[in-house]
């Protein structure tokens, strides 16, 4: 999660691209190196997917991509889950958690971003600096008291400790992302709306939020990926198997089956990556541009 999180710090509203080279040289050797390296990198993933269709004993004997005996058994066995809870349940739980996290981050993040970008109030600069400081803060310095707090109010083993922080914009990164974007919305547009009798709350809802849609989508995508991949928080707060997410379900699988059931484990691991991959395919533009423009100065 952190890797992606930190590698962008969006300035998504500025895109200046200068052509690097006027001559397009595409030497076959270069392509060959790039493709060979790419296959080497992706082979473990591809192999995992193909192995999820192999019987267990074949996984360890057949390093090739193509299964000798093709079987759906791993998926059937894996989907059945453990202790009477099916993997479908874990998927539903993860989807619920991710949806809530996306709503929370978008709402709280865009509200704070609107305030920082377009409204005037006392101590704005200090508060903004504080927000930037929280970006660098390792969450370990807050996690223990947070756990004690959620334990005191009987929220351990519920989804609340994982959802509430999103609605309180604890991930300042998204505020930063949206501030950069909302700053670029022309003031004249807002003045025009004001003259037409648009109040500040309607302004946020009807003007700012729709105009900041690209930043909102980027926020949603990254929230999706990080929450889906999150393990520490879910491990900490969820202990009832009926509340397990995909990540926890996989871990339980690994513990319960050990080395005996790689086929089913690979099958469920593959399934767990499908939502990430789907988001990547459909929203690649937002994802790559979000990261790409992220590290740039200016």
């Amino acid at each position: 999660m952190e890797t992606q999180k930190v590698s962008m710090s969006a300035k998504i509203n500025r895109k200046t691209k200068t052509k690097t080279s006027k001559v397009r040289v595409s030497t076959p050797i270069k392509h060959l190196i790039i493709i060979a390296l790419g296959i080497l990198m992706l082979y473990p993933l591809i192999w995992m997917v193909s192995s999820s269709f192999k019987p267990d004993e074949e996984i360890f004997t057949n390093p090739s991509f193509w299964p000798e005996t093709f079987t759906w058994d791993n998926y059937i066995q894996g989907w059945a889950g453990l202790s009477g809870v099916s993997f479908g349940k874990f998927f539903l739980n993860s989807i619920f958690l991710v949806t809530m996290a996306m709503i929370g981050n978008v709402l709280s993040g865009s509200m704070a971003a609107y305030a920082f970008a377009k409204l005037d109030f006392a101590f704005k600069k200090i508060l903004f600096a504080l927000m930037l400081m929280t970006l660098m803060l390792p969450f370990h310095v807050t996690v223990i008291p947070q756990y004690i707090l959620f334990n005191e109010i009987d929220m351990v083993n519920t989804y609340w400790p994982l959802i509430i922080p999103k609605f309180l914009a604890v991930e300042g990164f998204f505020i930063f992302l949206m501030v950069q974007f909302i700053r670029g919305i022309p003031g004249e547009l807002m003045q025009a709306a004001e003259i037409d009798g648009c109040g500040p709350i309607r302004m946020y809802w009807k003007l700012i939020l729709p105009l900041a849609l690209p930043a909102v989508i980027t926020t949603m995508i990254f929230t999706f990926i990080w929450t889906w991949n999150d393990f520490f928080g879910q491990l900490l707060y969820l202990s009832d198997i009926n509340k397990y997410t995909v990540a926890l379900g996989l871990r339980m699988f690994l513990d319960a089956m050990g080395q005996n059931s790689w086929g089913a484990m690979f099958a469920m691991s593959t399934l767990s990556l499908v939502p990430l991959f789907t988001v990547f395919i459909f929203f690649q533009k937002y994802l790559i541009e979000g990261i790409a423009t992220g590290g740039l100065k200016g």
Binding site: M1, L42, F231, L254, W262, L273, F277
Partner: peptide, 23 residues
């Protein structure tokens, strides 16, 4: 190419990949 090389970053932090690594 860029997309292909990016895929490991997308999946890398997940439990699934850690399990794969163990194998």
């Amino acid at each position: 190419y860029r997309a292909a090389y990016y895929v490991p970053s997308l999946f890398g932090g997940s439990v699934a990949i850690a399990i794969l690594w163990r194998q």
